[in-house]
Measured scan of single mutants.
Amino acid sequence: NQASVVANQLIPINTALTLVMMRSEVVTPVGIPADDIPRLVSMQVNRAVPLGTTLMPDMVKGYP
């Protein structure tokens, strides 16, 4: 099973992602692959992302 990117904390709308905000976890449904975490750094979320939420491609501005 492939690990996905999961919010490690509440991420407010328009926040630029940092490594501490994300963790990898095997979840269903599958979200953004954990391998993409380095690419996500400094990209902004377009909505508030609660703790434990799987990051989906449509939540991150400019992804992929």
Score class of each variant (00 low, 15 high):
Asn1Gln: 14
Asn1Thr: 15
Asn1Ala: 15
Gln2Thr: 14
Gln2Met: 14
Gln2Lys: 05
Ala3Glu: 14
Ser4Tyr: 03
Ser4Pro: 01
Ser4Leu: 02
Val5Thr: 07
Val5Arg: 02
Val6Glu: 01
Val6Gly: 01
Val6Ala: 03
Ala7Asp: 02
Ala7Met: 04
Ala7Gln: 00
Gln9Ile: 06
Gln9Phe: 14
Leu10Cys: 15
Pro12Leu: 08
Pro12Asp: 13
Pro12Thr: 07
Pro12Asn: 08
Pro12Lys: 06
Pro12Ile: 04
Ile13Cys: 08
Asn14Leu: 08
Thr15Arg: 06
Ala16Gln: 10
Leu17Ala: 00
Leu17His: 01
Thr18Gln: 10
Leu19Val: 10
Leu19Glu: 10
Val20Ala: 08
Val20Asp: 10
Met21Cys: 03
Arg23His: 06
Arg23Leu: 05
Ser24Thr: 14
Glu25Leu: 07
Val26Asn: 12
Val27Ile: 06
Val27Ser: 04
Val27Gly: 03
Thr28Trp: 05
Pro29Trp: 03
Val30Gln: 13
Val30His: 13
Gly31Glu: 01
Gly31Asn: 01
Ile32Cys: 04
Ile32Trp: 03
Pro33Tyr: 09
Ala34Ser: 10
Ala34Val: 08
Asp35Val: 13
Asp35Arg: 04
Asp35Glu: 14
Asp35His: 09
Asp35Lys: 06
Asp36Arg: 10
Pro38His: 10
Pro38Asp: 11
Arg39Glu: 05
Leu40Ala: 00
Val41Thr: 07
Val41Ala: 05
Val41Arg: 05
Gln44Val: 13
Gln44Ala: 15
Val45Glu: 02
Asn46Ile: 15
Asn46Thr: 15
Asn46Trp: 07
Arg47Ala: 13
Arg47Val: 14
Ala48Trp: 06
Ala48Leu: 10
Val49Ser: 01
Pro50Leu: 15
Pro50Gln: 13
Leu51Tyr: 13
Leu51Lys: 12
Gly52Glu: 04
Gly52Thr: 02
Gly52Ile: 02
Thr54Asn: 01
Thr54Trp: 02
Thr54His: 02
Thr54Gly: 02
Leu55Phe: 09
Leu55Thr: 00
Met56Arg: 07
Met56Cys: 09
Pro57Ala: 08
Pro57Asp: 05
Asp58Ile: 11
Met59Ala: 09
Met59Glu: 03
Lys61Leu: 14
Lys61Phe: 10
Gly62Met: 06
Gly62Glu: 14
Tyr63Arg: 05
Pro64Glu: 14
Pro64Lys: 15
